[in-house]
Computed example of a mutant assay.
Amino acid sequence: MKVMVGIPSYNNGDTISFVVEQAAKGLEKYFGGGLVVNADGGSSDGTRDAVLSARVPDGVEVRSFVYKWPIPGKGSAMKELMEVARDEGVDALVFVDSDLRSITPEWIYKFAKPIEDGYDFVAPLYIRHKWDGTITNNIAYPMTAALYGKNIRQPIGGDFGVSAKLIDVYLGDEEVWKTDVARFGVDIFLTTTAIANDFRVIQTALGLKIHDPKDPAASLGPMFNQVVGTLFMLMVRYEDAWKEVGTLEAVPVWGELVKGEPEPVKVTLSLLKERARELFSENEAVLQKVLSEETLKGVMEALKTFEFDDVLWSHVLYDGAAAYRRGILKNAEPLIPLYFAKTADFIEKTMEMSTLEAEKLIEERARVFLEEKTYLTEKW
């Protein structure tokens, strides 16, 4: 089987050579060699030099290029990596992030082998700290599970395995790459497109994920808007695929699950609360049009106490999606203060919990979102 590892990057000079070396060892050990390709966004810190000077075994070719797609972002890098994979005729393309510190050669096997076994999309299943991946835990996971009925725990995990057949689907519509799919919307696009088009999906057990996590209140940047906006855009595109789904189906896991407690992630609870209240004031006029009267009332109470239950939170996102569809909500940014408030609620509830205990609350959230789905279909 011909396997390529694709690594998107932008100013990851400190971490990327380790990722390249581990990926190359995996290709050599399990597939007799292969191709590692880096698509860079024009880094100024020597990222590409680090890639090309990485020590790799014989039989592994390493390439690095600056992508040409005019929209700067992770998705543009991944688009051009898929084009390379298609041109090279690979059977499996494995995407890995450039800041991973926990990647091992086995990760490459765990992403590529299920493709050889007949799957088309391989999602990561890691153990992440309870406060790592708050957009995943609060939005991408419960929304994807409830909408499409597939219990994929890390739909925007960043590391994936994809088949040649699926690459053709991803590259089939050039217009979609002119949206936030070219930026941080790419991961939810890859996962949703695979599920909505009935490709065979599986999760692969990877153990602990150690990378460079960020404090959600301090460094959200444009990611929220791009991920949630893309999720809403895909809901419109794939309406026929989710509207009648009423059950949550387990997605198989490839490999053995392991347990452990990941490195702690720093969060500034006071800043989350402060930003939630401040940004709500700035966006209140828009939110009055987006949210139902009852949801808005619940949100205003939640901003006083930071008690923000999952039913209310599902209604916020479902109102947001319906408003996006009708053109009332142009992008997801006005929802950020409510995301901050929900994140603060989760941090307070899980302060004394282990990651495993907190995980049960996140799984319950997906079930609540499914139970509340009639609220969405009525609003839609």
Rank of each mutant, 00 (worst) to 15 (best):
L220E: 14
V176Y: 00
A366P: 04
I7C: 09
A194K: 05
L234V: 06
L166C: 07
E293F: 10
E301R: 15
F224L: 10
M300I: 12
F280K: 07
E284R: 15
K289N: 15
L287M: 08
S281N: 13
V228I: 14
E359R: 13
G42D: 04
K373C: 09
W131D: 03
V201T: 12
G34T: 05
L208A: 05
F308K: 05
S292I: 00
E293P: 07
G229A: 09
A217L: 05
Y148W: 15
P72M: 11
D319A: 08
R277G: 13
R55H: 13
T15K: 10
M4W: 08
G327I: 10
K130G: 09
K74P: 02
E363A: 10
D215M: 06
G6I: 04
D117Q: 14
S17L: 02
A54W: 03
M78N: 11
I328H: 11
R326G: 04
A205Y: 02
E21G: 08
E293A: 14
S354G: 06
I347K: 00
E88W: 01
D99W: 09
L81I: 09
L125Y: 06
V267N: 06
E371W: 03
E294D: 15
D58P: 09
D159W: 00
G75T: 06
G46C: 11
W242I: 07
L376T: 11
G59I: 01
L312A: 12
E363I: 11
E106G: 12
I328T: 15
I347V: 15
V36W: 04
D45W: 07
G327P: 08
L81V: 10
S43H: 01
A77E: 05
D120K: 04
D212I: 13
A24V: 02
Y324R: 06
S314E: 12
Y324P: 11
E28N: 10
W131E: 08
P334H: 03
I328E: 11
S270A: 13
V251P: 11
D117G: 00
E278N: 04
R153P: 00
H211D: 15
F184R: 14
R86S: 15
D132T: 10
T192S: 13
K379P: 02
T179P: 11
Q22I: 02
L190M: 14
K29E: 04
E359G: 06
G34E: 01
K178D: 14
S53E: 12
G298Y: 06
D173P: 04
I71T: 10
G13I: 02
K273G: 12
P213K: 10
L208G: 02
L338Y: 09
S270W: 05
